[in-house]
């Protein structure tokens, strides 16, 4: 089975959120729903030196991601109706004809990718822009990235030497086998590192 995935160069990302904005626009998302998230992570602190000057070991980094179209999706496992399914291209998406809106997928996904859209009565999430991909285009978020930090393609073509996403606040990649490959950057901390916190909660929660 072919498997598409994202490749994300964290060293290039500036946290601009254009990827998210493009997705929101293209998929005409209501304001409270986003398929792509850009987390701003922060660690460290400030302290005063003997002369009253400021020194800091603080740092900031961004992580941009959507659904990882995982090898072992947590969402499809729990879905009672099979609405959440992985198709023959490896895309995980919602069959809206089947979804009962129970929200199990949203609860179980450790990437917080699906959301139940109450007005539509079903779950919604990143579908990898599979219609665009079928036409030979990139997902809109990929084409939008101002820094060309995200690329997309068959995983065998995505620099396989780069490791699967292992960065806080994302989970251990061993859990679901995310098809998100990351070029790490200086500031990154691995999954589970409790010294970092989310600095833009209202923007992602």
């Amino acid at each position: 089975m072919p498997q598409y995935g994202f490749h994300y160069d964290a060293a290039r990302c500036t946290g601009c959120k254009t990827c998210e904005a493009a997705c929101r626009d293209y998929h005409d998302l209501p304001i409270d729903i986003t398929y792509r998230h850009v987390y701003e992570m922060e660690g460290g602190s400030f302290s005063k030196d003997a002369n009253g000057c400021w020194v800091t070991d603080s740092f900031t980094y961004y992580v941009s991601f959507a659904c990882q179209h995982c090898d072992h999706p947590a969402c499809t496992k729990v879905c009672p109706t099979g609405a959440m399914h992985k198709d023959d291209q490896g895309f995980v998406s919602v069959n809206t004809e089947r979804c009962i809106g129970c929200g199990y997928c949203a609860m179980s996904c450790p990437y917080n990718a699906p959301t139940v859209d109450r007005s539509l009565g079903h779950s919604v999430k990143c579908d990898g822009c599979k219609d665009r991909v079928a036409q030979g285009q990139n997902p809109i978020c990929v084409d939008a990235c101002t820094q060309r930090a995200i690329t997309f393609g068959l995983v065998e073509d995505l620099a396989p030497s780069d490791s699967r996403a292992d960065v806080a606040p994302l989970p251990d990649p061993a859990l679901t086998g995310p098809n998100l490959y990351i070029v790490s950057c200086d500031a990154y901390r691995p999954h589970g590192d409790s010294s970092v916190h989310v600095a833009n909660k209202p923007e992602v929660k």
């Binding site: 089947r98 009962i100 009565g121």
Partner: peptide, 11 residues
Amino acid sequence: HTLTPAHGIYA
């Protein structure tokens, strides 16, 4: 609790 119980048959 479900939003679209009509699809419940697929459950």
